[in-house]
Computed example of a mutant assay.
Amino acid sequence: MSSPEDDHPEVGLPKGKIVLGSHFATSGTYGAAFKPVGRGLAAYFRYVNAEKGGVCGREIEFIPEDDGYEPAKAQEVTRKLVEQDKIFAMIAGLGTAAHGAVWEYLNTKGIPDLWVMSGAHKWAADPQAHPWTVPLLPDYRVEGAIQGKYISENFPGKKVTILYQNDDFGRDTLAGLQSGLDPSKNELVGAQSYEPTAVSVSSQVTNMAQTKADVAICACIPGYTAQAIEQADRLGWEPQWWVGYVNSDKLMFSYTSAETMEGAFTLNANKPIDETSDPAIAEHIRIMNEYGDVAPANFSIVGQNAGMLTEFALQKACEKGPLSRESLMEAVESITGYYPTDPKYALALP
């Protein structure tokens, strides 16, 4: 591995350091839902500094900023990270609308924009126009297609409806669902949308219930998911619920009871946090207990995955020569079939 080139340091690479930044919600309603992602990322970077001596002979200086899940605030904190803090790369910017407000800026500035914490289809739809952006989460269109295919295979003849957030997240899920459903087996009898700023989705769920659908998809973030299922219960409507993977954490039970969520389907690409006998889960729990400030959870695992990919990409870049933003992107683009060989880091489902 090459030694750091500190005589003429690149922006974001002061002597002995790599400065990384991120934006995500840590306060308010959305912070309650998604804070563990950022905390898992920060804990992993602290672990790398403390137990591995950093990466590329440098300590990771990580600067997370709270954007409250608001696009305007995301723009403000991202400009601060780039223009004042002089970050080397943006890591795991979270939220479809929030990150959508800053990715053009990051690409214009030539800032590596890695492991976007949103499954919006647009992040990878045109890599030539956005060469600095690399998403991490499964595409929402793919998730919707999986849902549709599963419903047609396992609930033939059943009527289907969907509640979706009126942004790329929800619209991508709807498009995927429509592509995955077999129209000869299932009819999509309704599609209700809500704005990300909505106070309530009760009227939309009432409209859904009137269709008497047997299966209901909720392309919603946790607070709205809880509202939807609770309203359906109040109406006496009991469809088979399928909720987006953005709800696949025990944090859901801070919005509603486990009894309310009983029987709902969701997807998850990682091992669940309660599989404590798994060596990777056991190590994640140790890292969070020693270096984190929130309880280990499914979403803190997502954060650690982003941290491990960052570490891996930086190491690959340094092995090729002096570290630069361009060499980091070349390393990222060369990654194929990534899966940790050490079982204590294998958090993703194989």
Rank of each mutant, 00 (worst) to 15 (best):
2 S>Q: 09
10 E>I: 02
20 L>D: 03
32 A>V: 15
35 K>C: 00
37 V>D: 00
40 G>D: 09
49 N>L: 02
53 G>S: 06
60 I>L: 13
61 E>P: 06
64 P>H: 10
64 P>D: 07
68 G>Q: 10
68 G>P: 13
70 E>S: 11
72 A>K: 12
77 V>S: 06
84 Q>M: 08
86 K>H: 15
86 K>W: 13
86 K>P: 12
92 A>P: 06
94 L>E: 05
103 W>H: 07
103 W>C: 00
103 W>Y: 15
106 L>R: 06
113 D>P: 08
120 A>Q: 04
122 K>N: 09
125 A>M: 12
126 D>F: 12
139 D>F: 10
152 S>H: 08
152 S>Q: 05
161 T>I: 05
164 Y>F: 14
169 F>R: 00
179 S>N: 14
180 G>K: 01
182 D>W: 13
183 P>T: 11
183 P>C: 07
200 S>R: 05
205 V>F: 11
211 T>W: 05
212 K>H: 15
214 D>M: 01
227 Q>N: 04
229 I>A: 02
232 A>N: 03
235 L>A: 09
239 P>Y: 01
241 W>M: 00
243 V>H: 00
244 G>C: 05
246 V>S: 11
248 S>M: 04
250 K>E: 15
253 F>T: 03
261 M>H: 04
261 M>S: 04
263 G>Q: 00
264 A>K: 00
271 K>R: 15
273 I>E: 12
286 R>N: 09
286 R>D: 10
290 E>K: 11
294 V>I: 07
296 P>W: 09
297 A>Q: 13
300 S>H: 11
302 V>L: 14
307 G>E: 06
307 G>T: 11
310 T>I: 03
311 E>A: 11
311 E>T: 11
324 S>R: 04
325 R>P: 09
326 E>I: 14
326 E>D: 15
327 S>V: 08
332 V>R: 12
333 E>T: 09
334 S>G: 09
334 S>C: 08
337 G>E: 15
339 Y>N: 03
342 D>A: 13
342 D>K: 14
343 P>G: 10
344 K>E: 06
345 Y>P: 04
349 L>H: 15
350 P>G: 06
350 P>M: 01
350 P>Y: 02
